[in-house]
Every structure is written in structure tokens, then in C-alpha cells.
Nucleic acid binder design. Structure first.
Lengths: 256, 256
DNA sequence: ACCTGAACACCGTTCAAGT
DNA sequence: ACCTGAACACCGTTCAAGT
């Protein structure tokens, strides 16, 4: 079954698969007479490399070695490293769960964020790959549709709903990337590092930096989950504030 | 000024030496055989490299070439590439203007964000270096102090003020990085790319993706400034919402 | 038709050797 | 004391050549 998603399905009559996103190239080689390479094999190997050795270890040479093939042969199936990265992203975004909207739009949207963070956490190394990219792959579509639906039916202005993905995607990806870079592995070493910075801040001249000195102890506290929940809450509160002041009848925001 | 000792000086005051006769061997030791290095020289060269060739061009070899020195000599003044990056970041963050608080805390805090984005824009290539790093350099302190002071005197809970820097820093750095990656250089090519994605989204089956299809035209519209202002507004609105529901007398949030 | 191997033009970092 | 040059262990990508 590995080859299925590989097959270019131009055949009409097959129902409603979304069209290929613009960044996807057609594989250069088709007709596989032997158990040779394929996009799926390459993407799976890439994912294995990222998970076992981190995002910065995702190199064409390493992926090739993981499969047992030369680096150059990968270029028969994938146009560039960037395309491989997009394929990897699309694969793991497919794991994000679309939640039940029963708890209201605010919880539903937060749940998408939580699920996305959980997926990034379960594939350490992938979050860094989203930075500076918009993963407009097929698996992103279901998520986008759900979130847009939630925001619109809550009564938020279309432009507000449209911009939200930008902000939320940046936030979740950024948080996940920071967690990758500073893994929660060794709590003792982590606490020592925090204590060092807090100590430095508290040693500042209190007359010139009164607020920094005063807040130093709580500037760097809080676990990853706590900070993430707080950040999502801020964003959702900002979104919700648009419900108190709806746009004017022409749909413009801010209202005239 | 450290740079002064760097200037290669060929014995001032001594009048023009006649050229060496052919039979003379070169002197074994010149007073200053090579221009002396220093951190300032290296950081300045690094900044020049980043600005002229982008953040991904910041390599030790390129910085060395910019100065006219071997790559390995840089390690006499800077422990690693990461330290060099931190020095570059601190240098440019020093350019961020601390605004007047006259317009109220919301505008003041937004102005810090705007100024920071402006600085990143004027040094293209630097923003990407902030990702996954907390630039706790000396020049960050004045900014932190100002923002914390604004938020506290506005009446926001200390923990909310403490977390704000995290969120805002992630946002500004992320936005600036995205602008670096997709520079606004060629408006025609940019618009063509957007049109391609919009076309792809509009071609989706409208029964399965009604909201995505409906919002496709406005999902990717808006200039960089507009999106940035909107994102900052969302965050500030979220912050302001804490003023409507202040923390309980014990200082806890959310209030019991 | 598919894959390899060498090549090109790069990386960060180390370290013995030269001046 | 300071800097160089070679070396080590890597990159992404291309392309003639082999099978």
C-alpha cells in the first residue's frame, strides 16, 4: 500500500481529492519495475531521521543513508530538499485531531492548537521546519476549514478569521520550535540555567531597572504547558474582543 | 573605541622608505604583519555580511573573508558561531527606540514592537537569528524595563506582564523572519504566487471546504504592515481583557 | 530506466606550524 | 602572541557513466 499516495491520479471519475498544492512537483520517474525508491519511502525515512537525530540532521545524504541508497538518487523523486520538507510536514500535520466543537468556539480552536503542539512534540525536530514556511499541504486543509468555520459561525468578521491562521500558526510553530531547542530533558540543569539568568537580572541596579528586578523571579517561571495555555488565551481573548464591537454593516473593521 | 587599535599603522612619521633593492631579503619580522582582530571588527563584518547577503550567508568563513583574514583566526576572539550571532543581535537591538509613553500603554507597547520590526527590516537577515534564542543581552534590558513598567502601571497582573515578552518577542521575530524569507521585492512575482495559491484554494470542492473556498480571496491579502498591526492588536486586546477582570486580592489569575 | 560516484562549491571547528 | 593552512567531517545539487 505504500505506493498508493504516490500514484499520480489524473484519472477522472475518482471523487474529490483536493488538487495538488503548487509546491508539489510531479515525480520524475514513474513505472516502477522493481521494489525501488518512492516518495513514501523517502518521506518515511526523512521522518525517521528527524525523530532520531533532530531537525537539523535532516539532510539529503542522511536520508539516503537511512534507506541505503545514494544521495543523488533521491532527486529522482523529490525536486529539492525544500519539497521533501513540505512532504514531511504534510505527513505529520495529518495527525492533528479535529476536535469536537461541543465546548464552544474558544475551546475548539484552542484544542486545535493543543493537538498541533502535541503532534510536534511527538515528532521532535519537525517544528523547526515550519518556520518561514506556510505548510499549505492537503492535510492542512481540513484543519483550516474547521477553524474558519468555528470563527465565522461565532460571528467574527471574515477578515479577522482570515488573519487568525497566520498568528496562531506562527505561535504554535514558534513555541514548539523553542521546546525543541531547549528540551525539557534535564530539570536540574534547566533550573540552574534559569537561576543564573534570574540572578543576573536581580543583580541589576534597582534604581534603573526597578520592574525587571522586581519581576525577575517570575519572568522565567512556568512550565511549557502553562506558557502555551497563557499565550493561546491571550490570542483568543483578543479574538473575542471583536465580538463586543462587531464590524459595521458594510463588513469593515474597525467600524466607522 | 576598540577599533582604534585595529588600524594597521605603518610607522607614522617615518618618511617614504625607498623600495627594497633586489638583493635584499624580506625582513623576517614586520612590526604589524597583519591587521589585528577584535570583537568589534568581527561583529561589524558579520553585520555587513548579513545585510548584504542574508542571514543564511552568515558563516565564519564569509565573515573572515570580509575582513581579509583566515576563518580560524576568528576563534581567537569569539568562542563559536553562536556567540557571534548573540553579539550581532545585541548590537542591532540597541537600535530599537524606546518610545514616549504619552499615548498610553497600548500605543507605547505597540511602538516598541513597531520599532523592533523596523530595526529587523533595516538589517535584513538578522531576524532569523532570533528564532529559538532569547537575546538576553545588555541592550534588551532597557526595552524590557520600559515594557514591564508600562504594563504594571496600567494595572496588569505581574504574571501577565511577565509572560508578555515571550509572546511579543516570538511574534515580532517570527513576522520579521517571514518577511526575510519572502521579501517584498518583486510585487508582480509575489502577486502571481498568491494568485496561484488562491486559485488552488478556490478550486477545492465547495461542499467539503465551504469556508476555505469562501474566504480564499482574503486569506492571503493584506500587506506586511497590515498583518503585523492586526496581530499586535489581537495581542494587546487580549492583554487589555485582563483589566476588565482583575486578579483576586491574593494576586492570583484567573480570580477564584 | 534507474542508480552510482565523482565532482563542485560550500559548511563549523580544531590544531600543529609559521612568523 | 597572533595568525595561517591544512585537515576533518560534513552540506545540497548536478551529471556523466555504469548497469
Amino acid at each position: 500500500m505504500v505506493g498508493m499516495t504516490d500514484t499520480p491520479r489524473a484519472e477522472p471519475g475518482v471523487p474529490a481529492d483536493p488538487p495538488e498544492p503548487p509546491w508539489r512537483s510531479a515525480p520524475k520517474r514513474r513505472s516502477v519495475p522493481r521494489p525501488q525508491l518512492s516518495r513514501d519511502v523517502i518521506v518515511a525515512a526523512a521522518l525517521r531521521v528527524v525523530e532520531t537525530a533532530g531537525g537539523q540532521a535532516l539532510t539529503m545524504r542522511r536520508v539516503a543513508a537511512e534507506i541505503g541508497v545514494s544521495a543523488s538518487s533521491i532527486y529522482g523523486y523529490v525536486a529539492s530538499k525544500d519539497e521533501l520538507v513540505q512532504l514531511v510536514l504534510d505527513q505529520i500535520i495529518a495527525e492533528v485531531k479535529v476536535p469536537s466543537p461541543a465546548g464552544g468556539w474558544q475551546e475548539a480552536v484552542k484544542d486545535v492548537g493543543r493537538s498541533m503542539l502535541a503532534v510536534f512534540r511527538s515528532h521532535p525536530g519537525v517544528a523547526g521546519l515550519t518556520l518561514g514556511r506556510v505548510p499549505w499541504g492537503p492535510s492542512m486543509l481540513g484543519l483550516t476549514e474547521f477553524v474558519l468555520g468555528q470563527l465565522r459561525s461565532a460571528g467574527l468578521p471574515d477578515q479577522v478569521a482570515a488573519y487568525f491562521g497566520d498568528l496562531a500558526g506562527l505561535y504554535v510553530g514558534g513555541i514548539a520550535y523553542e521546546e525543541e531547542i531547549h528540551p525539557a530533558g534535564d530539570p536540574a540543569a534547566e533550573q540552574a540555567e534559569v537561576a543564573q539568568v534570574v540572578g543576573w537580572l536581580q543583580a541589576l541596579p534597582a534604581d534603573r531597572f526597578p520592574n525587571t528586578v522586581a519581576l525577575a523571579p517570575i519572568l522565567m517561571t512556568g512550565g511549557h504547558d502553562e506558557r502555551f495555555e497563557w499565550g493561546m488565551d491571550i490570542i483568543i481573548r483578543g479574538m473575542a474582543s471583536f465580538l463586543d464591537r462587531p464590524p459595521d454593516p458594510a463588513g469593515h473593521w474597525p467600524p466607522a
